[in-house]
Design a protein around this nucleic acid. Structure first.
Length: 820
RNA sequence: GCGAGGAUGGCGGAACUGGCAGACGCGCCAGACUUAGGAUCUGGUCCCGAAAAGGGAUGGGGGUUCAACUCCCCCUCCUCGCACCA
């Protein structure tokens, strides 16, 4: 008998699936199932870390097909963005050449793995057929007031020469692992999506996402970061009101200074006309020039400077100095904090350093605090003191009472503050979606009319290298245009969109990928949404996975889709590492799909990544991992070759089976049940181990001509199919050469009448220790089992001469005899 | 600092609702078949006992319970996320 001809067979069935259109989507699904893996940034070769993601998704998709669902399982390319452009600059070729080469390579790899995508629905974000709808959606968002332009200090990556969203700054550095340059602050005029308008909706929506990992839900909650507080008006000497937001109004009488962020707008003007003016300007410059990571590192010694100005506390009437302090964030609250050194650790440190008085206004119940003796702020709840009419109030109540007083006097307002900031989407780079806006000297900013979309990315660019401003600004044929309003000469916006815009709605485009009238038709989106199973990396928890929820919610509110949440179930898969380091295309570190499949086969790769560990766990790849599944495949092949593909009977008469045969039949049903329920619960490793166990039993079964044996073999093939599709398809066709694909055949249900043996072995414990076993009928009554246990000779020595206090029976599980 | 998750053989990992800890696989040991084996098959493989009988074992310590990997309290360590958010 020959070895399993892996590659020959895999190629055969991949061709067959293609030709028969096995994975084509039913456009009119009756029972839909949308399984989606996060699409791919095509950046060179594909390693087993990528493959893990797609093998998981494909296993789910094929299983659902066999269970009778109409499955949507599409794929596409997240093809715009910096890596492509940087690589293009490095290799001195246009970005699209590099990108499409990468796509070809990756697609070949996916086909080598035999992943069952409906390639008719392929989406490529750098094609005008796709990105025109980015522009269209941008304009819709603009009309709805969800797009705006403002000058602000933004994250600037000096190496990529572009701004970054907050979600793209990781530990103060550029999020791209091959860059990781410290991010700077730069004042620029940029386009933003007003995601903060959806902060509460995004937060509320998390409650519904019960099919998401708890960790992701918590991360999103923290990222959105809701706090309740109050905005209090302090007053400058000239009467100007300056609002300060706080969550601790109960400490308002303890304010001894105000601190302003160096990049807050007020910081520029506050010191005007004071002797401090020069020093303040120098301080702000010095602070802002530092990379944010250094400036805002926790635990760092705080820096500040007095502005020469004072403000009046609206409750106590006290006059306090205004400082500029580097620990205050411009983008949170009002960009200014009230300094309460007695009750906030940061304020405490700052006050000690600059000899600002410390005032105690909260004390622990029944105790006193002496400012001079304090070594840290007292930030716990307590009782209010030195707080005028509020003295004696417990601080938690005090928060409410102070707010009420402020509101009554019209000098404060309750306000919820979110940590989430608006999404900065403009990029000063070439390889992205042009922003469909026109700047006219007379009419100001004018949107490009819908009928003029797409605004095409010009191909005739000589130099893609960024120079601190947009590449497109230097492309005259692109930048010069006419104003749609007045017809006069005008200029296009030179920036391109963040690629996270592309990935925020691709899940909807898959439902209607060729629509040239709309991004997608509502009816089609509603047929498939929400996504039933979404699989991707956890690194997207606070980026893409928030953005695509945001888009879906806006599109819902625009009446374009019925669902508010895009995705019912999310699974995050663990990274795959090699020699302790995460596999990475850009660092050329990994096991590559192409050579691996050529050597071991696609089924081996699939079984390998699925069997090695539960999907969410990180996985250290090793050759030993392959050995087991490769042996498994070889053993399956050998057993079936030996058995000779004899057709089983259509119906199995269970009554006529002898004991041995019936046992096999029961084991088959147990295996069937476990494989399906485990796979449905995303436990592919134990599903595969159940198949391995059953294979071992098939080998030991004495009569290979028994109908039940033949029956079991064919069922085994069907159960194996989602995990090792090529091998299974081959075996299936050896039985049924005239039938279609195993994946379009409805998988039978297991026989629930035969998932238990007639007799069971029950462990007997004495005082909790295992002392023996007893075999009883599954239907025997409680007394009968207890009697058998007490009479068992295994336990006799342990109960002899002792008083049996109690006999605990857990039916079908255990008997515990308690003696004294 | 705050938050989340985790710790089980030499390794990856199993264990339903609290009910036989270590399924399955790798590795290792022994044997069989072989000219040969890095192929295949069979058996063994948590630790202490020569062995049986017994004990002891799920990061450490306590508790609840007839019974604890599982529940409760304390501690240690690891991973991840956020991190001066007022």
């Amino acid at each position: 008998m020959s070895d399993y001809p892996i590659r020959e067979i895999e190629r055969k069935w991949q061709r067959f699936w293609d030709e028969k259109g096995v994975f084509k989507t039913n456009p009119n699904p009756k029972k839909k199932y949308y399984v989606l893996e996060m699409f791919l940034y095509p950046s060179g070769d594909m390693h087993l870390g990528h493959a893990r993601n797609y093998c998981i998704g494909d296993c789910v998709a094929r299983l659902k097909m066999m269970q009778g669902y109409d499955v949507l399982h599409p794929f596409g390319w997240d093809a715009f963005g910096l890596p492509a452009e940087n690589a293009a600059i490095e290799h001195n070729i246009p970005p699209w050449v590099w990108t499409f080469d990468s796509i070809d390579l990756c697609k070949r790899n996916l086909k080598l793995l035999g992943i069952g995508y409906d390639w008719d629905r392929e989406v490529t974000t750098c094609r005008p057929e796709y990105y025109r709808w980015n522009q269209w959606l941008f304009l819709k968002f603009y009309e709805r007031g969800l797009v705006y332009r403002k000058e602000a200090y933004v994250n600037w990556c000096p190496r990529c020469q572009t701004v970054l969203a907050n979600e793209q700054v990781v530990e103060g550095r550029c999020y791209r692992s091959s860059c990781a340059a410290p991010v700077e602050k730069k004042k620029l005029t940029q386009w933003f999506f007003k995601i903060t308008e959806y902060a509460q909706d995004l937060l509320d929506g998390i409650e519904e996402l019960t099919g998401w990992p708890e960790s992701v839900r918590v991360m999103q909650r923290n990222w959105i970061g809701r706090s309740e507080g109050v905005e209090v008006d302090f007053q400058l000497d000239d009467g100007t009101k300056i609002p300060v937001w706080t969550t601790r109004p109960d400490t308002l009488y303890g304010v001894t200074f105000l601190a302003l962020a160096p990049d807050a707008p007020l910081a520029e003007t506050i010191a005007r006309g004071t002797a401090q003016k020069q020093a303040v300007a120098e301080f702000c410059n010095r602070v802002l020039i530092q990379p944010e990571i250094e400036r805002t590192a926790a635990g760092r010694e705080k820096q500040g400077i007095f502005t020469g100005r004072f403000a009046q506390n609206p409750l106590s009437g006290e006059r306090v100095p205004i400082y500029i302090a580097d620990f205050v964030l411009a983008g949170y609250g009002t960009g200014m904090v009230m300094g309460v050194p007695g009750h906030d650790q940061r304020d405490f440190e700052f006050a000690r350093k600059y000899q600002i008085p410390i005032k105690v206004v909260i004390v622990p119940e029944g105790k006193t605090l002496v400012p001079e003796a304090m070594t840290a702020a007292y930030s716990e709840p307590g009782v209010m003191v030195n707080s005028g009419p509020f003295d004696g109030t417990p601080s938690e109540q005090g928060i409410q009472r102070v707010i009420e007083e402020l509101e009554r006097r019209g000098i404060g307002r309750r306000r919820v503050q979110y940590r989430l900031k608006d999404w900065l989407i403009s990029r000063q780079r070439y390889w992205g979606t042009p922003i469909p806006m026109i700047h006219c000297r007379h009419c100001g900013i004018v949107p490009v009319p819908y009928e003029q979309l797409p605004v095409l990315l010009p191909p005739d660019v000589k130099d893609y290298k960024p120079k601190g401003k947009s590449v497109l600004a230097g492309v005259e044929s692109f930048i010069n245009t006419t104003c749609p309003k007045c017809g006069g000469p005008a200029q296009r916006d030179p920036d391109t969109m963040d690629t996270f815009v592309d990935s925020s709605w691709y899940h909807l485009r898959y439902t209607d990928p060729h629509n040239d009238q709309l991004p997608f038709e509502r009816g089609k989106a509603d047929q498939w949404l929400p996504i039933d199973e979404y699989i991707g990396g956890i690194e997207h928890a606070c980026g893409h996975l928030i953005f695509f929820r945001f888009f879906t919610q806006v599109l819902h509110d625009l009446g374009m889709v019925s669902v508010k949440e895009p995705c019912r179930v999310l699974h995050t898969q663990g990274m795959v590492s090699l020699e302790g380091k995460t596999m990475s295309s850009s660092r050329r570190h990994g096991v590559w799909v192409g050579p691996f499949v050529e050597e071991h086969g696609a089924d081996c790769a699939r079984l390998g990544v699925l069997f090695a560990a539960p999907p969410e766990k990180p996985l250290e790849w090793s050759n030993e991992l392959v050995t087991g599944v490769k042996r498994f495949i070889a053993r399956i092949w050998r057993l079936f070759e030996e058995a000779g593909y004899q057709l089983p009977p259509d119906e199995l008469t269970v009554d006529k089976l002898n004991a041995e045969e019936k046992k096999l039949y029961i084991r088959l049903n147990q295996t069937h049940k476990k494989v399906i329920t485990d796979a449905d619960n995303f436990q592919f490793n134990t599903a595969i181990s159940a198949l391995m166990e059953f294979l071992n039993e098939l080998y030991l079964f004495p009569d290979r001509n028994a109908p039940v044996f033949k029956f079991a073999l064919v069922r085994f093939v069907r159960l194996l199919a989602p995990f090792a599709p090529h091998l299974s398809e081959e075996l299936w066709h050896r039985y049924y050469p005239e039938k279609g694909s195993i994946f379009t055949e409805r998988m039978p249900e297991w026989d629930e009448r035969f998932v238990h043996f007639d007799t069971i072995e029950i462990p007997i414990q004495v005082n909790g220790k295992l002392r023996g076993k007893v075999v009883v009928s599954r239907t025997s009554g409680e007394e009968e089992v207890k009697k058998a246990a007490l009479e068992s000779k295994d336990v006799a020595p342990h109960i002899e001469g002792k008083e049996v206090v109690r006999v605990v029976l857990i039916p079908g599980r255990v008997v515990n005899i308690v003696v004294r």
